[in-house]
Design a protein around this nucleic acid. Sequence first.
DNA 1: TCCAATTTTGACCAGTTAGTCAAGAAATTT
DNA 2: AAATTTCTTGACTAACTGGTCAAAATTGGA
Lengths: 213, 213
Amino acid sequence: MAAGAAQARSGSRSRIQTENRALITQAALDVFSTDGYRGATVDRIAERAGMSKTNLLYYYPSKEDIYRTVIEQTVEDWLRPFAQIDPDGEPIEELRRYITVKLKMSETSPEASRLFANEIQRGAPLVMEFLTTRLKALVDEKAAVIGTWIDQGRLAPVDPYHLIFAIWATTQHYADFEAQIGALLGSQAKGPGFSEQASHAVLSILLNGIRPR
Amino acid sequence: MAAGAAQARSGSRSRIQTENRALITQAALDVFSTDGYRGATVDRIAERAGMSKTNLLYYYPSKEDIYRTVIEQTVEDWLRPFAQIDPDGEPIEELRRYITVKLKMSETSPEASRLFANEIQRGAPLVMEFLTTRLKALVDEKAAVIGTWIDQGRLAPVDPYHLIFAIWATTQHYADFEAQIGALLGSQAKGPGFSEQASHAVLSILLNGIRPR
DNA sequence: TCCAATTTTGACCAGTTAGTCAAGAAATTT
DNA sequence: AAATTTCTTGACTAACTGGTCAAAATTGGA
């Protein structure tokens, strides 16, 4: 019996399947994140994955299919630390931890951040449903948590939604605008202590603000 | 005498020239900002500008030429308010004004913001030189100003460069991630009071932080 | 009005791209 | 080792893309 194209939906994955799918998604992440969906070419992804385009299309039947896979993976990774914000934790400590994790993610996988940013900038054609359902539910939930913290006087009174946006914005900026930051800071941005420096500054600004105390 | 293609570099511009060039750059801004450089097609830009592709290419001889024009214009607009930060002004007031202007820009021309973001995310192939020369000089200058303010105790002690990044990140987020914000806030994000609400929240977070006082 | 310059267009071309197909190579099972 | 399944590839196609060209339509000044 001829197995469906690369065991499409079946759970069983051979060693080769697993390896090649990983190679492809990694390559796709690189290419999509710099060239965008339309700008990326299947040929280029295949080349970077070290195989022929035909072979790549054996594993993922279409360009959109690869993109979908990669972006879904990205979204999952992106969501996890946000979901872990603990309503029973110390507010400042919880947010400090979340900000730190997000900054770390921007440092270790800027491509994923850029891929997501790109998708949103295009009007989120693929993840719009995710945004309005799962993400919205989660954001509403966490915004309520932040609201409670504010009511308890454990956090300054700011709109919880905009606070979430501010955290996302500042942390992802280091991935999405990496080229600009590198150009403006020169060698400093590549040095070893940079991420600690950035982390310290971002935390200081978001937690304490810039008004002198 | 046959005039060079659409008076290429000559200063003289007929009424038709002026009108059509404006139509083209506006259309190009829309298309480039959503589809990216490679994803955008000359045909699509022409269609949106309401003319044939051939005619568009009469005014701008190549796709790259249009892109260059649009992005240079964008960069100029983007730089102006930053350059206006006054070393002799009241620090908090100066930064408040700058943040407010940038938020307004995100609201009135989100396409320009997305176009620039897109260019940077691609590794800034076209504006890299601008970043490392003119922009770097200006940022160094303003960072020094902020440093002085901090030394005078008129601003909390934060790294000036990262402060600038934080301001850029938070303000542009409202343009670049418009789709996400709309999806998460629903009707609220389209309402009339929204930009004031966003502005208030961003200013509150950046100026005062989220730690309760 | 008449004429030259400007503006606009359809037909066309060469290069690129996503995806197909049939056949060969490699791995796995029997 | 033979048979079968899985994996890989080169050759190909149809659609699309950036750009050219020559000719037609329009504009504006004399």
